[in-house]
Design a protein around this nucleic acid. Structure first.
Length: 233
DNA sequence: GCGACAG
DNA sequence: ATCTTGTCGC
């Protein structure tokens, strides 16, 4: 019987079936906090991302931390690891969190917020990657995906800052956010210790110029460096 | 039953 | 996610 990845510490096992993973999601979901801490004003913001070699089961993960005031990087950690869970829509966290966990453990600073490259609350069981990671690490988090997953939404305005609600099963689970005019919008949802308005506000602050939040851009650049540097060596 | 389906 | 160059546009 697999461990349920009980936070905040203890042995965590990732060898499990999709059915078992679903049970883990439903169990951990009860720990999800849907409001940010009182007076939440993050300074250290982390971005997490994973890169996978095509047709391989090897992944390169990275977490990069920036100071929101200066937008400058203040810490970073990377890790290469075998991905022991397949990509199954709805269970992305079980594939990406193991290598990201190693990055998290290696960080020298404790971020006030983590932005994940994937959905959070906008998930079939309301427990996407950002929710799972946030609960495991007990840190406020945001899900910021490049593509839609669940729900429907009205057309998004063309101007930067325009948004549209993502509705699923009669509930607003996230928002489509235009971070840059002329670019595809982002799909934002709350993770742990977070709410939708705060998540949208932070994503726009983190992406003043480019489509993706600065945290995601840096993490993405880092994992690709790790992947390219590893082949041939 | 059929199609859809984060990275 | 990854395979991939140049090219159109602000």
């Amino acid at each position: 019987m697999p461990d349920t990845n009980t936070p905040p510490s203890g042995p965590r096992r990732w060898e499990m079936t999709v059915a078992e993973a679903r049970t883990v999601q439903q169990t951990l979901r009860e720990r999800l906090v849907v409001q940010p801490p009182p007076g939440f004003s993050p300074r250290l913001v982390a971005g997490a991302d994973v890169s996978v070699e095509r047709f391989k089961h090897y992944g390169y993960a990275a977490i990069v931390v920036i100071d929101l005031q200066t937008m400058e990087q203040v810490d970073e950690a990377g890790a290469a690891a075998e991905l022991r869970f397949p990509y199954v829509p709805g269970y992305l966290s079980f594939r990406e969190l193991p290598p990201l966990q190693r990055c998290w453990d290696a960080l020298r600073v404790r971020p006030d917020l983590v932005v994940f490259d994937g959905h959070g609350y906008a998930h079939p069981r309301r427990f996407g990657l950002a929710c799972h990671g946030g609960v495991l690490w007990d840190v406020p988090s945001i899900g910021c995906a490049k593509n839609p997953f669940i729900g429907t939404h009205a057309p998004v305005g063309e101007a930067r800052g325009a948004t549209a609600q993502i509705v699923h099963e009669g509930e607003t689970v996230g928002k489509v956010v235009r971070t840059r005019a002329g670019a595809k919008p982002l799909y934002v949802s709350a993770g742990h210790r977070m709410d939708l308005p705060t998540a949208v506000d932070l994503v726009l602050r983190l992406a003043p110029r480019y489509r993706q939040p600065e945290t995601t851009r840096l993490a993405h650049r880092r994992v690709n460096e790790l992947r390219r540097a590893d082949r041939g060596g």
